[in-house]
C-alpha cells in the first residue's frame, strides 16, 4: 500500500532539495571566493613595502592620469631601481632574471572590468578621486587584492555622492560606460 504522504513531505525529495540548494550555495560561495581571492602573481609583489618607502602609485602605473589604463610597470622600470640592489631573496633574483633575459614579467591584473564595461582612469584622477578609493589601502597589502563589490551599484553610488544632480544625468547614463 502506498503511504499517503504528499510528495513534498517525502524524505528523498527533501534530501534532494537540500542537496541541490547546498550545491548551488556552495558553488556560488566557491565562485565568490575565487573572484575575491587575489590571483597568483609571478612575483608576490610587496605593494606595502614600495608604498612604504614613498613610491608614488603613478611612478609605476604611469597611465592613470593621462589615459584609460593605468598600465603595468615595464621590466626595465623595475630594473631601473633594482639593478642597484643586491638580490637578497628568491623574489629579487626573479626580477633580476627577468631583466637579464629581457623578458616581460607576466603580471596578472587584478582590478579588471569585463569587456562590456569601459572604464577610463583619466577623468577619475582629474576629478580628484584617490587611488585608494577604488583599489583599497594598497599600503597594507602585499599583492594587490581585489576589492569587494566592485560592481555597478558601487560605481553609481559614488557617482551620485560626488556629483550634482545635473552631472549625475551624465554619470548615470548607460552610454557612459557600456558600448
Amino acid at each position: 500500500m502506498k503511504p499517503n504522504v504528499p510528495w513534498w513531505q517525502r524524505g528523498s525529495i527533501r534530501i534532494s532539495i537540500v542537496l541541490v540548494l547546498l550545491i548551488l550555495v556552495g558553488g556560488a560561495g566557491v565562485g565568490i571566493y575565487y573572484t575575491q581571492a587575489p590571483p597568483e602573481q609571478p612575483i608576490p609583489f610587496p605593494h606595502n613595502f614600495h608604498v612604504g618607502i614613498g613610491a608614488e602609485c603613478m611612478y609605476c602605473h604611469t597611465g592613470a592620469a593621462t589615459g584609460p589604463s593605468a598600465g603595468l610597470p615595464t621590466t626595465n622600470k623595475c630594473w631601473g631601481c633594482h639593478q642597484q640592489l643586491e638580490p637578497r631573496n628568491e623574489n629579487l633574483k626573479l626580477v633580476a632574471s627577468f631583466a637579464e633575459n629581457e623578458e616581460s614579467i607576466p603580471w596578472v591584473p587584478v582590478a579588471l572590468q569585463p569587456d562590456f564595461v569601459k572604464f577610463n582612469h583619466q577623468p577619475h584622477i582629474t576629478a580628484g578621486v584617490s587611488c585608494e578609493t577604488c583599489h583599497g589601502d594598497v599600503a597594507s597589502m602585499t599583492v594587490a587584492e581585489p576589492q569587494p563589490r566592485h560592481n555597478m551599484g558601487w560605481c553609481l553610488d559614488c557617482h551620485q555622492k560626488m556629483s550634482t544632480p545635473e552631472d549625475f544625468v551624465r554619470l548615470s547614463d548607460c552610454a557612459t560606460c557600456h558600448y
Partner: peptide, 28 residues
C-alpha cells in the same frame, strides 16, 4: 551570475612590456 557579472577577464594574463616604447601608452 550571482554577483551580476564578476570581473570576467581577470584571469587573462596581460603581458607588460620589457621596455615600453615612448610613443606608446597602454590603452591609448
Amino acid at each position: 551570475v550571482l554577483t551580476g557579472c564578476g570581473p570576467a577577464s581577470r584571469y587573462v594574463v596581460r603581458q607588460s612590456y620589457v621596455d615600453m616604447p615612448e610613443y606608446n601608452q597602454t590603452g591609448k
